[in-house]
């Protein structure tokens, strides 16, 4: 008997003939009280992100030029001139930057390690938990580019901000490789003291537009 057959047979043996299946109560909240993109949710998202020590830049309109200006300002202050960006990022977002490397899958990790920052969009953000979801599509890029550079500038459109975790999960496609980001990388492994910045980007700049 193969290991597969044997384990399945063991499980059936352990369960007996008629294991009872409980009804799964789903009385938890499926959606929040605020509709996606409302000012209350944007405020809550910003509050949570700042609580995680992310830097939040607010842009009043969902205007690509204004977003580009905010990105340029945030990076210039930090002395960063070079970024990598996935091919789907609007040109206007990176137009004011001196050196933009458009990602192709051929850029290896060692090369990415020498690029100080990455600029991407996002697909959805969850206000209650301060979570931004990247789905590997053209505006978010493949996973390595948002991981290796030390600074991640991520644009969140207000209309993509939902209140609860269930609403967030309903809006993404599980067949894609997803990354849920809640603040910069962090550890609590030393005396349970939270330290922001370990292996992932140590600086997370979120541009909230609209």
């Amino acid at each position: 008997m193969t290991a597969r057959e044997e384990i399945l047979s063991r499980i059936r043996g352990a369960l007996g003939d008629t294991p009872s299946r409980p009804d799964v109560p789903r009385t938890h909240r499926q959606q929040g009280v605020h509709r996606p993109g409302t000012p209350e949710l944007v405020r809550q998202l910003i509050d949570r992100l700042e609580d995680y020590r992310a830097t939040v830049v607010r842009v009043a309109a969902e205007d690509d030029d204004a977003i580009g200006q905010a990105i340029a300002d945030a990076l210039t202050v930090r002395g960063i001139g070079q970024v990598v960006a996935p091919p789907g990022v609007p040109r206007a977002w990176t137009g004011r930057l001196a050196d933009v490397v458009v990602d192709e899958a051929s850029i290896d990790a060692r090369t990415l390690d020498r690029i100080p920052a990455v600029v991407t969009g996002s697909v959805v953000a969850i206000a209650e938990t301060g979570t931004i979801v990247l789905d590997g599509a053209t505006v978010c890029g493949r996973r390595a580019i948002t991981l290796v550079p030390d600074t991640h500038v991520c644009v969140v459109r207000a209309m993509h901000v939902v209140q609860t975790v269930p609403e967030g999960l309903q809006r993404v496609d599980p067949r894609r490789a997803l990354t849920f980001v809640s603040g910069p990388s962090a550890t609590s492994d030393i005396e349970l003291d939270r330290v922001e910045g370990v292996h992932g980007p140590r600086t997370l700049i979120v541009v909230v537009a609209g």
């Binding site: 938890h28 949570r48 995680y52 899958a105 969850i126 209650e128 938990t129 301060g130 979570t131 590997g136 493949r142 996973r143 390595a144 975790v165 999960l169 599980p174 067949r175 894609r176 490789a177 997803l178 990354t179 849920f180 980001v181 809640s182 603040g183 910069p184 990388s185 962090a186 609590s188 992932g200």
Partner: peptide, 30 residues
């Protein structure tokens, strides 16, 4: 359900910094 229960019970955070999900192999990514 579990992505709400786990981080709050575990590290006492509203959400852990990173959750990764993947399905088999994603061409050109990972």
């Amino acid at each position: 359900v579990f992505l709400q229960l786990l981080p709050r019970s575990s590290t006492g955070e509203r959400m852990n910094p990173y959750t990764s999900t993947w399905t088999g192999v994603t061409p050109g990514d990972g």
